[in-house]
């Protein structure tokens, strides 16, 4: 790794969501019921460093903590534990003005093209509000600035007086991207940003992301459940299972030589255009509830290679090749 500190680093991030007992449950406890607060470990001691200009893909199944990690990376959510560093400096310890500047440098693109735009604002306000508030453009230049941004994301600037509902899903996604670009970010967290779009529209938006990367030198954390999309876009891929990273490696490497049994199962299970009349060989078992995850390796109830040790001891992420990290006990024997 080079000497320059990574652009954005997450160190030992954990996020616990606690659902406190309500009054009725507390009264029941007084009477002898042994109810406890429900604790979800949405993210469990995750480390991630993203270098300038890189695209890191984050893959995992529903509820594994992708969005939570993404929101922590974007600074919308404060983690229960861990540090978030921007170019080496801990954001929580920065003076307010500097922290705010970092907040603007990291922007988020959301999944739902309906819920992510305020239905009562015109596109020009959705896109132009933040740069005006933060003094990025002067009042008189706002119109031109918004028009330029809309053109940048492939929308006709003539649309700027429209409301979100007057757009199709793909156009709304573009408006959301323009809104993020308006504050001149350097880092985009895309949370399932194309999941809600039709295949042909999804391709357009993915192309837009690639153009923006080439033109503006943006860095991405690209969250998706779609391995094909992640494979296409990312330089490095992190696979997440129940709050923990199980494998992280350069994209070519992970798709060619998956190490972790879960990654291997995921790759074997995805339908592919060139696999005809195949017999689907599924990973068995269900995704466990994050409320009480299995002890040891979270994946052991579904893992075809599980050994007794897996039930008691959680495997740590270990380097198995340069830049290739995996958390599986099987690697110890090698």
């Amino acid at each position: 790794m080079s000497d320059a500190p990574p652009m954005l680093a997450l160190d030992g991030i954990s996020q616990r969501f606690v659902k406190r007992l309500d009054v009725a449950a507390r009264i029941a406890n007084l009477l002898g019921a042994k109810l406890k607060d429900e604790v979800v470990h949405a993210v469990d001691r995750v480390d991630l460093a993203v270098r300038q200009g890189e695209v890191v893909g984050l893959v995992g199944e529903s509820g594994c903590g992708k969005s939570t990690l993404g929101r922590i990376a974007a600074g919308i959510l404060a983690p229960s534990e861990g540090r978030r560093r921007w170019r080496g400096k801990t954001v929580a310890e920065m003076p307010a003005a500097e922290a705010r500047a970092v907040e603007l440098k990291v922007q988020m693109i959301f999944q739902d093209p309906f819920a992510s735009l305020n239905p009562r604002l015109r596109v020009e306000d959705i896109v132009g509000e933040a740069p005006a508030v933060h003094g990025i453009v002067a009042g008189g230049e706002r119109d031109a600035y918004v028009a330029e941004l809309l053109r940048r994301v492939g929308l006709d600037p003539g649309f700027r007086r429209r409301y979100p509902h007057q757009f199709s899903g793909g156009q709304r996604a573009r408006v959301g991207i323009a809104r993020a670009l308006a504050v001149k970010p350097e880092f985009l967290v895309c949370d399932e940003a194309v999941a809600a779009l039709d295949v042909s529209i999804q391709a357009q938006v993915l192309n837009l992301f690639m153009d923006l990367r080439a033109d503006l030198g943006l860095t991405y954390l690209f969250i998706s459940h779609d391995l094909g999309v992640v494979e296409h876009l990312s330089d490095r891929v992190a696979i997440m299972y129940l709050g923990r990273f199980v494998e992280i490696a350069p994209a070519e490497e992970i798709f060619a030589r998956p190490n972790h049994p879960y990654t291997a199962a995921l790759l074997a299970g995805i339908p592919r255009l060139d696999a005809r009349k195949r017999r689907f060989e599924p990973v068995k078992g269900e995704i466990p509830s994050p409320l009480n995850p299995p002890p040891g390796c979270h994946f052991h109830p579904r893992c075809p290679h599980a050994i007794p040790r897996c039930r008691v001891e959680a495997p740590a992420l270990k380097a198995i090749a340069p830049g290739h990290w995996s958390a599986c006990h099987l690697n110890d024997g090698k």
Binding site: S200, I201, Q204, L206, M210, G228, H232, L233, L273
Partner: peptide, 24 residues
């Protein structure tokens, strides 16, 4: 043909997808 070209896994990594312009 356009639909098939739009599927990311069918395309080379990092290369622009063959997209269908416009919308439904």
């Amino acid at each position: 043909a356009g639909l098939i070209g739009s599927v990311p896994s069918r395309n080379r990594r990092g290369v622009k997808l063959a997209q269908i312009p416009g919308m439904t």
